[in-house]
């Protein structure tokens, strides 16, 4: 028999409710920051414009990492740009998500044996969704975004939390790939 007595929710429950409400807004309004250094970036214009129109999902491009929710890493990452990518990722407001494009972000793709390119993106920043393919076609890019929305809905897009929890591991990987910069000025980094 159910009790009719009013039972106040605990603080965790209230927080969880608010979080779920927030998740509804977050998954319906994903603002992207496009890190277009790889060839997969060519798939984004058709996704944004009239052919596939990602604005109907509430997605749109943003200018700076502060404003954005999703970081799109479109393709291979050289060591030089990885440092910038990490800097940009750390500037984003939480909660933040990362989508890796193409096989290069998964295992290095055709650049897997290059000395200047990293192979596995999720060793350095937490990736929530990978869109496989070389290159992935636009439909699969759109599918990837819808997958990300489902993950947010099911509270599984927790990469940013993971980055906090296993920060040491990520930092160690980053350091192993990039080495350490001793002099901090405009020329050495």
């Amino acid at each position: 028999m159910l009790s009719t007595k009013f039972s106040p929710m605990s603080k965790e429950e209230v927080d969880r409710k608010w979080w779920e409400i927030g998740d509804f807004f977050r998954r319906n309004s994903l603002w992207m920051l496009m890190y277009c250094t790889g060839c997969c970036a060519i798939e984004l214009p058709p996704a944004m414009t009239s052919a596939y129109d990602m604005e109907r999902l509430g997605m749109g491009p943003m200018a700076t990492p502060r404003q954005a929710d999703v970081l799109l890493v479109t393709g291979y990452l050289s060591l030089k740009t990885l440092r910038r990518l990490i800097y940009t990722y750390e500037q984003m407001s939480e909660p933040k998500y990362v989508v890796g494009f193409g096989s290069c972000t998964i295992n290095g793709g055709i650049y897997h044996d290059s000395h200047a390119v990293i192979n596995q993106l999720n060793k350095y920043v937490p990736v929530d969704v990978f869109v496989a393919g070389c290159m992935p076609n636009t439909e699969s890019v759109m599918n990837g975004f819808i997958d990300l929305m489902d993950l947010i809905k099911n509270k599984k897009a927790n990469g940013w939390k993971d980055y906090h929890e296993r920060n040491d591991w990520y930092k160690a990987n980053q350091k192993a790939a990039l080495g350490e910069v001793k002099i901090h000025d405009e020329f050495h980094e």
Binding site: I21, G22, F25, R26, N28, S29, W31, G58, R66, D69, Q91, S93, E94, P95
Partner: peptide, 13 residues
């Protein structure tokens, strides 16, 4: 509305 409420729900700097 979604955009605005989403922004309000985020943790900013």
């Amino acid at each position: 509305f979604l955009d605005i409420f989403k922004l309000l729900s985020k943790r900013s700097v």
